[in-house]
Design a protein around this nucleic acid. Structure first.
Lengths: 222, 222
DNA sequence: GGATGTGAACGACTTCACAGCG
DNA sequence: CGCTGTGAAGTCGTTCACATCC
């Protein structure tokens, strides 16, 4: 399997989703929720693309991956499309996550409603600071990091949210991987490596802010 | 100028930096800081790429944009390379930013040391909640959103950090743009549009988390 | 007519491979 | 000899354009 593409099945039908396409599926899903709220039972590729700044062709290419849901001359059935996207993204079920490193960012993630709404549930908090261990936040007790493997197993958590300082990120990632975690969302401003079989998505605020500085300096339109 | 590339100058020498390249420059810079701390006065493209999971060719292509800094047979001079990257990214000066929407995420950003270190300084806070207006955080008073245009002008702020709920994001972005802000870092989980002349970078946590769910569901290596 | 699905053209980004310089 | 800089090749993603179907 080559680097940037993600094949769907082992069978013959070649079907791929680039990282960028997956990101757009999330955006489509969100937009569809709005459109459905407005009573739109059918939706066209141009309607969907419009608000997101995408061409209709782009939208159709992305949605083609889901199968033949579109009806020529009509558009896509809103509900079915949402179901298909949810299934493809894997958000038609609950995901349990543990959160390591309880600072302000962690609190922000804990209180962020969007996560629960999409089926993500934080089931445990960890920190190394003895002053924090034992404290309660939103009904969860902060635990010592040594308890991590046992808790991950007991709770059946599959995802890890990494909000520790950069220096600690790699070692915590290693612990999470060893504990059987299958995906890590890393917020530490450092490159983290994970073993095969574990997925990684990084949100690097420093990089994003520098990106913005560059664009502004360029005098950019976007 | 086509969509995904950003030309350096109007003159003949074709020189471009994709968004991805700019992101990698940030990573190089960070890695170089480490290497310099370890006493490395020269650095090779393979050394730099190794820790970041990039090929040496990729690194050289990115660095070629900065000019001919590399010395065949030797590598790149660490300090000069850092200076050049900082200059290109626009982080060799101070950027003043205002922060709109004072929740937990805002607090996390305020306390994040990496920002100050890279020359980003938050000079004002805004919120609509009357209970919050007037409060002090880290020496800054939370102001009413109506004061935004005047404060942006008075302080000479160029960047806006947008940590408001999704429903409010677009209208606040409009206000920021009208106030003369030149770049917006948006954290609200919604697509925001900005006028030409204003740059936008978005950090959409929902999208990132769904990306992770997708990758894990795929049973992915990365 | 209106909108989809998709090969083909196009464009952007990455990797290869090697000439050339220190 | 090692490492850079860079054309050329290769790969990936987006846009175009149109046959197809409701």
């Amino acid at each position: 399997m080559s680097k940037g593409d993600l094949s769907r099945e082992a069978n013959g039908t070649e079907a791929r989703l680039s990282r960028a396409s997956v990101g757009r599926l999330s955006l489509y899903l969100r937009r569809l929720e709005e459109l459905l709220r407005d009573g739109a039972l059918k939706v066209s590729s141009s309607q969907l693309g419009e608000a997101l700044g995408l061409t209709d062709a782009q939208v159709r290419k992305d949605l083609a991956y889901l199968g033949h849901l579109g009806q020529p001359g009509i558009g896509y059935p809103t509900r079915e499309l949402m179901t298909a996207i949810r299934h493809t993204l894997g958000v038609d079920r609950e995901w349990k996550a543990v959160l390591v490193g309880v600072g302000n960012l962690a609190r922000a993630l804990l209180r962020y409603r969007g996560f629960q709404q999409q089926g993500f549930r934080i089931v445990a908090l960890f920190d190394t600071d003895p002053a924090k261990v034992g404290q309660q936040i939103d009904g969860l007790t902060i635990r010592a990091r040594d308890d991590l493997p046992a808790v991950v197993t007991a709770e059946g958590a599959e995802l890890g949210l990494l909000t520790v300082p950069a220096e600690a990120a790699q070692s915590v990632a290693d612990v999470l991987a060893a504990a059987g975690i299958r995906g890590i969302l890393n917020f530490a401003p450092t490159v983290v490596r994970v073993p095969a079989g574990v997925s990684l998505v990084s949100v690097d605020l420093t990089v994003q802010l520098e990106q913005l500085a560059f664009l502004v300096q360029l005098g950019g339109d976007s």
